[in-house]
Design a protein around this nucleic acid. Structure first.
Length: 291
DNA sequence: AAACAGGCCTAAA
DNA sequence: TTTAGGCCTGTT
């Protein structure tokens, strides 16, 4: 079907023929986002579908400099999705910053990870998701979040199939620790609950995180039981548009020891730090999968 | 079967 | 202040 025919059937579609390099696979399969899956609904080389910011959309493309969005209008693109995909951000500039470190491994990581965009996700969703991510693996994280949404989110229909929005913290608070535990969240149930409680009892919490400087923002997030430096770093990077965030997990720790034996001064990277972390993470995972 | 998964909390030195 | 253990569950 053509775009025009989809539109006539009531499905919004927008096509951008010239965007900064974007790889859907890399961006949606590098562990920053747990709500998108590869789909084959349309006739494109690559396509991922999922719910973000309360809407179900399918991102699709036949090459990395174009983009189709099914379930969105042109206005939606400029108001919502361009920012969500960080297509308004100058990555060339960030690359220049990273290349100035003159590290051969990082150089390779950049060219291999080219097309990764840091998604600007909803703050609360990022907070909740990365609490769930701790001491866990991606398939199970996705499974837990999916059942969380199915049970406590709102239903959305897209071409006859059902999808669910990410639940509000109020909804999860009302689910209670037992309700959350029933979703196989395990020891994280009480952590999620504490996050809900914090946000419910302190209405300005997310806002104060947003307005605080990075260190202070991290401190605030760590007040939630179950949120430590790594989770807070992810939440700030992916949910608060804080490019300075450089979450260090076991993999990144190993990677840094390997490629930066003299250490890496993250503060030199400014708001390119998070992208650097993503490239290194992707690079290392790619190499290990290859082996 | 034992170890591990993009950590964090708690108790004990 | 730093350092082991333990933790829900699913997969290998």
């Amino acid at each position: 079907m053509t775009i025009k025919e989809y539109k006539e059937k009531g499905l919004d579609v927008v096509y951008l023929c010239h965007i900064p390099t974007l790889s859907l696979e890399k961006s949606f399969d590098c562990g920053q986002c747990f709500r998108f899956d590869a789909v084959s609904l349309f006739n494109h080389k690559s396509q991922v579908g999922g719910v973000a910011l309360g809407k179900y959309v399918v991102f699709a493309q036949d090459n990395e400099n174009e983009l189709y969005i099914y379930g969105a209008t042109k206005e939606d693109y400029y108001n919502i999705w361009e920012k969500y995909l960080s297509l308004d951000v100058d990555y060339e500039k960030k690359h220049t910053c990273l290349l100035s470190l003159k590290n051969a491994h990082l150089e390779k990581a950049i060219s291999m990870g080219n097309g990764i965009r840091i998604l600007r996700q909803d703050s609360w969703e990022a907070l909740c998701s990365f609490i769930i991510s701790q001491n866990n693996n991606i398939p199970r994280i996705k499974k837990i979040i999916s059942s969380l949404c199915q049970k406590y989110g709102e239903k959305i229909e897209f071409l006859g199939s059902e999808h669910y929005t990410f639940p509000t913290y109020k909804a999860l608070y009302e689910a209670g620790v037992e309700g959350l535990f029933d979703l196989k969240t395990g020891f994280r149930a009480k952590y999620i609950f504490d996050a809900c409680k914090t946000l419910l009892e302190n209405e300005g919490f997310l806002e104060s995180v947003k307005n605080a400087d990075f260190t202070r923002a991290q401190e605030l997030l760590c007040k939630i039981n179950g949120v430590g430096p790594k989770v807070a770093g992810c939440v700030l990077l992916f949910g608060f548009d804080r490019g300075e965030g450089f979450p260090v997990d076991v993999h990144i720790k190993r990677t840094l020891e390997k490629y930066f034996p003299k250490g890496l001064d993250v503060s030199l990277l400014g708001d390119s730090a998070g992208l650097c972390q993503q490239y290194l993470f992707y690079y290392e995972r790619y190499l290990s999968e290859d082996a």
